[in-house]
Design a protein around this nucleic acid. Structure first.
Length: 771
DNA sequence: ACGCGCATTGTTTTT
DNA sequence: CAATGCGCGT
């Protein structure tokens, strides 16, 4: 490609051009899906540097995934070549981590601080709960952690934590202790990276001025997914000249569970009244039909700026909605369609299969393997979550930072070296009593006379101390790989792996993972990366970052992971109530609106073909469960659907969401037979399951657990339409509808308070009173 | 201290 | 159906 092809201002529509060439001051770009947002952002960066003469180090660009950052950097390189050296592009977390490493003296942490992932955090909370003698049964560490994390996202320190209920009381006691454990471990969790950065900037004029001078321009992608801490950070970096360029789309805000608040878009307009607002409404990605479907889904949301999304790609294929008998048939249907597309010269890497929860990938994977279709799975149980990887990284972390208590506790007896729970507790007690660090005590333990540990155990600790000393020595002199090799040999890790592996395949898999980790270390050696930086990089690496697009494989991923990506063909599977909207979303304020946005994100990933599938029943925890199609499907105008399933057609006439499928009547059998004969003709390596095993109409028998749900509406409900109720949080309201969902009663209530509107709640959780 | 087996229990999304 | 947790026996 020539330089001319890359001309910055070529092929831009007027709005895009305005965004790329905007002057100084705050700019808010509201960009619909497929409107060329990434292109605008990258050209803007290139424009500032090439045309406005800005130093590359004079701007900071933040994205939400490392992949997005890499993509941006790559594109900018095309425009600028070598001139982009020194450019700061990264996720919020990675950007903060890098700065904090340099500026650690403005924080209570040392330079070699480590980053705790979710598992480490849970371990630390459990530790704190133990220290405070709080029952982990009554107060699950994960819930406490969530509360702490929310507080941090709001920049609330332990001392500022105001409990609102009994659970909050507990949190307010655990939070400070948790923070203490992290600090003494010289460890930050993900949230701390943001919080400590904000605190450091707020507390030190010197530091703040340094970075405000340095960053003349601040650019933020996916602005609708920022939380309070991130918003403050942007604000602080941007002062005093406020050259802040943010790009976002309220309709694609899908990270509320980690504190993201799309209202930050509104707040931005309030905080910067002179901000230039640019709307990118032209979609270059999808056909009109797909956009119409997307709009139908999102239009039901209340708190949004209506956008006039349009595309020049008029028409297009109608979308396909398919009702499958169960999850297995759903998977087979997807495969059948993939084979058909393939015959029409579509390649595998043009196809993505999406779902709401990672667990749903299982059935799809099985089917793909059987059909011999190559695929890549994004996310799931990622590489860094594997036990062997976590073990070995914990060793490296302790070598890097011997204060890391969570990692220390993980490895002290892995592989088994005879130091049990009791001895370890005693060890920590001593350290606390003598006010020594773990390393300090390790070095001294053999010399202390009155130790309540048996001499044999003291000897075991001493042996470990000797090894640790050697490793730490080697870490400062040798390469990472040589350290790794010494380490794995000396602790006999292979033997240990063999002992924990249930099968030869499992052993082989684990060995491969270890080899892969060794490969990563080798690469770090090549790039001259220090141990602490390597550890930080791995901690901040997400599974989404590993998406490879060049290999000819079908991509499997969650709807969340799909954001920012696009595919000619998209399958969204499991479009059922309970998944989409997810049942847990009912408990959250505006939860359903977020689920709609999630569906919207999924739909708008598709360029040409969109398939929505759901199943009549689904296997879960061994039993099987009758499912109902997603309420969102009723919002899709029928004329946009190629082959409307009978159930959907009937239902759309009525106002209730009563379950209707073709599977619960005689017609279902015929449909199943048709499906079977079609599937039989598929080129699979395995013989299809016998239809007898799959008889669709079967009375619930004892073999099917009580999990099987009665048809909604069939059982007696406690609440009836028309009744007035009071909810402890949402206030008064009127019951619109109520039905039984298994053993739970689902009540839809229209609340008087406009902020809450209509909500569907579970009766036994909602704690409502009849008026 | 350790390992085995049984029981329980939880079930979203991710930097 | 996992994965984890607990109690018991060695």
């Amino acid at each position: 490609m020539t330089a001319a092809t890359h001309d910055l201002l070529n092929n831009l529509n007027p709005q895009q051009l305005a965004a790329v060439t905007a002057g100084t001051g705050p700019v808010l770009v509201l960009a619909g899906p497929g409107s060329g947002k990434t292109g605008v952002l990258t050209r803007r960066v290139a424009f500032l540097i090439r045309e406005m003469g800005l130093r590359p180090s004079g701007l900071v660009a933040v994205t939400f995934t490392n992949k997005a950052a890499a993509e941006m950097r790559h594109r900018i390189e095309n425009y600028l070549g070598e001139r982009q050296r020194g450019l700061q592009i990264g996720t919020f977390h990675a950007t903060c981590a890098r700065i904090l490493r340099i500026e650690h003296e403005f924080t209570p942490y040392r330079q070699d601080y480590v980053i705790y992932d979710t598992d480490d955090q849970v371990a630390a909370v459990t530790q704190a709960l133990g220290d405070l003698s709080i029952d982990t049964k009554k107060f699950p560490p994960r819930r406490i952690l969530h509360a702490i994390s929310s507080a941090k996202n709001e920049l609330r320190q332990p001392k500022d934590y105001v409990p609102e209920d009994y659970f909050g009381e507990i949190v307010s006691r655990v939070y400070p202790r948790y923070q203490q454990i992290l600090l003494s471990s010289n460890a930050m969790d993900f949230d701390d990276l943001l919080v400590q950065m904000v605190l450091a900037l707020q507390n030190s004029d010197v530091l703040r001025e340094k970075y405000q001078m340095k960053f003349e321009y601040v650019l933020v992608d996916e602005f609708q997914d920022t939380n309070t801490a991130q918003y403050q950070l942007v604000k602080l970096f941007g002062l005093p000249q406020n050259n802040i360029f943010v790009v976002g789309d309220e309709d694609q805000s899908i990270y509320a569970f980690r504190g993201a608040d799309y209202r930050n878009v509104l707040r931005f307009r309030q905080d910067y009244p002179n901000a230039q607002v640019i709307l990118l409404e032209q979609n270059y990605r999808s056909t009109q039909i797909i956009l119409d479907v997307a709009r139908a889904v999102i239009d039901k949301n209340t708190n949004r700026t209506p956008k006039a999304l349009f595309t020049t790609r008029e028409g297009g294929d109608a979308i396909t909605v398919h009702e499958a008998y169960d999850d297995e048939y759903e998977a087979r249907y997807v495969i059948e369609e993939i084979e058909t597309l393939r015959r029409k010269k579509m390649t595998y890497n043009q196809i993505a299969i999406m779902y709401r929860t990672n667990a749903q990938s299982r059935a799809l994977e099985d089917a793909l393997v059987r059909a011999n279709i190559p695929y890549t799975l994004v996310g799931g149980v990622g590489f860094y979550k594997r036990r062997e990887i976590k073990d070995l990284l914990a060793y490296l972390r302790v070598i890097n930072n011997p204060d890391d208590r969570i990692s220390f506790d993980r490895i002290i007896n892995t592989p088994k070296r005879g130091i049990g729970e009791k001895s370890l507790q005693e060890f920590h007690n001593y350290a606390a009593k003598l006010n020594l660090t773990m390393l300090g005590l390790l070095d001294k333990l053999a010399g202390i006379e009155k130790v309540a540990l048996p001499a044999r155990t003291v000897k075991l600790f001493a042996e470990f101390a000797d090894k640790l000393r050697d490793w730490r020595q080697q870490a400062t002199t040798g390469t990472l790989v040589s350290l790794f090799d010494t380490l794995t040999t000396e602790i006999g890790y292979n033997l240990y792996l063999l002992s924990i592996s249930a099968s030869p395949e499992e052993m082989r898999e684990r060995e491969e993972n270890v080899a892969q980790l060794r490969g990563l270390l080798a690469r770090a050696d090549d790039d001259d990366i220090a141990l602490s930086d390597f550890l930080a990089d791995t901690a901040l690496m997400s599974d989404v970052d590993e998406v490879v697009t060049d290999a000819d494989k079908v991509t499997l991923l969650t709807l969340h992971a799909a954001k920012g990506l696009e595919y000619p063909v998209v399958f969204i599977t499991g479009v059922e109530n309970g998944f989409l909207p997810h049942f847990r979303s009912q408990e959250e304020l505006e939860g359903e609106e977020e689920e709609r946005r999630l569906m919207y994100v999924g739909v708008t990933r598709a360029k040409e073909r969109l398939f929505l599938t759901y199943a009549f029943k689904r296997t879960s925890w061994g039993g099987s469960e009758i499912r109902e199609k997603s309420k969102f499907l009723y919002d899709v105008p029928l004329e946009l659907i190629a082959d409307v399933p009978a159930g959907l057609k009937h239902d759309s006439q009525s106002t209730s969401y009563r379950q209707q499928t073709t599977w619960d009547s005689g017609g279902g059998l015929n449909r199943l037979k048709q499906d079977l004969s079609r599937i039989r003709s598929l080129p699979t390596t395995e013989t299809p399951t016998e239809p007898a095993d799959k008889a669709p109409v079967r009375a619930p028998n004892s073999a099917i657990r009580s999990k099987i749900l009665p048809f909604p509406g069939s059982a007696k409900t406690q609440y009836q339409a028309g009744q007035r109720v009071r909810h402890p949080m949402f206030g008064e309201g009127a019951v619109i509808h109520s039905e039984m969902d298994g053993n739970d009663e689902k009540v839809t209530v229209q609340f008087t308070d406009r902020r809450y509107g209509q909500k569907t709640l579970l009766a036994h959780l909602a704690n409502m009173t009849l008026l």
